[in-house]
């Protein structure tokens, strides 16, 4: 197999990983600070994608569409935090799972009712629809390259936000001892709403960015949500660094597995069965990775015991 193909696939894997990071970062932040497992995070991803598709269709501007995805997901996130999620912080995980599962049902069906069952299309903006020639003569989609850069910018931004600003200080304090920062005069419920809206905005952004390369449809969020869970289990709950490393690992394993495994099995099998064995195994590869991490480090790579 040629080096060009491998490099291209590695970039695809990175792009996929970066998207997963945007989802996983919000989830892990919400879990780390509020102790909440949020299944409805995938719905926020979908909300972002639909908002972007709707705005892009009426204005034609991709930048406005991205802004709409951030705003819509953040607003919807803040609303569900205020109405529902807030009541769940003191409940056990079972109640959290069920209530957020109920939210998925409500969001999915409402979206289907508003927009119909057919997928919407969000076009890649004109300026980014071509390819860029990378050093070494590799032509690569500039849109995907843009996604990778957005992901890196968000990762750096989150790092700065959490380690350098006053809000970040409160978030870290909230992770360590929520009663104490309440006693010190920080309005915890406002902080929680803010964190939830931040996580939601990241999910919405990720939905809009992916929506342009895939289709925008009801139920698009849940497969990504489950992958984000795998990322968090691998990286360790509550750790943004873990989410980043886990996301890149999962992105690369999945993308490279899909390309390499069928080729690998073709070495000692006939072509058709190699393809089927290879692709079946590739679809399981990240879960096998997760199982391996669980065997050696049950709390994840960067998780606290």
């Amino acid at each position: 197999m040629s080096t060009v193909l491998i490099i291209e696939q590695i970039l695809n894997g990175l792009q996929f990983g970066v998207m997963l990071f945007l989802m996983a970062a919000g989830l892990t932040l919400i879990f780390g600070v509020m102790g909440l497992i949020n299944l409805a995070h995938g719905s926020l991803y979908m909300v972002g994608a639909f908002a972007a598709a709707a705005v892009a269709a009426s204005t034609g501007s991709f930048l406005l569409a991205l802004a709409a995805s951030l705003a819509a997901a953040a607003i919807v996130g803040a609303i569900i935090e205020l109405v529902v999620i807030r009541r769940l912080y003191d409940r056990d995980h079972l109640d959290q799972v069920l209530a957020t599962f109920a939210l998925i049902l409500i969001f999915s069906e409402t979206t289907r009712w508003l927009f119909g069952s057919f997928p919407l299309f969000l076009d890649v903006p004109e300026a980014l629809s071509g390819t860029v020639t990378l050093p070494g003569g590799i032509a690569y989609s500039s849109y995907r390259l843009m996604i990778i850069s957005v992901g890196i910018i968000v990762a750096v931004g989150l790092f700065l936000l959490i380690s350098k600003t006053r809000i970040g200080m409160r978030i870290r304090a909230g992770e360590n001892d929520r009663e104490m920062i309440g006693a010190l005069g920080v309005d915890i419920s406002k902080l929680y709403t803010l964190i939830f809206a931040l996580g939601a905005a990241l999910a919405g952004l990720s939905g809009a960015l992916v929506g342009a390369i895939q289709s925008v449809q009801v139920g698009m969020g849940e497969p990504v949500l489950i992958l984000a869970f795998v990322v968090i289990v691998i990286g360790g709950i509550g750790s943004i660094k873990g989410a980043l490393v886990g996301a890149i690992l999962v992105g690369l394993t999945d993308t490279l597995g899909r390309v390499m495994l069928p080729l690998f099995f073709a070495n000692f099998m006939e072509q058709s069965s190699a393809t089927s064995v290879g692709s079946s195994l590739a679809s399981m590869s990240i879960y096998i990775l997760m199982a391996a991490v669980l065997i050696f480090k049950p709390t994840g790579l960067f998780g606290r015991a």
Binding site: F31, I37, H93, V97, P223, I226, F229, V230, I232, V233, I237, S283, M284, Y287, M290, A291, L294, I295, P298, T299, G300
Partner: peptide, 18 residues
Amino acid sequence: LRTSGVYFIMVTLAFGQM
């Protein structure tokens, strides 16, 4: 079962999805 709490939920969900 090497994990517990919220990890357990995510891990079982992931194996089901596998």
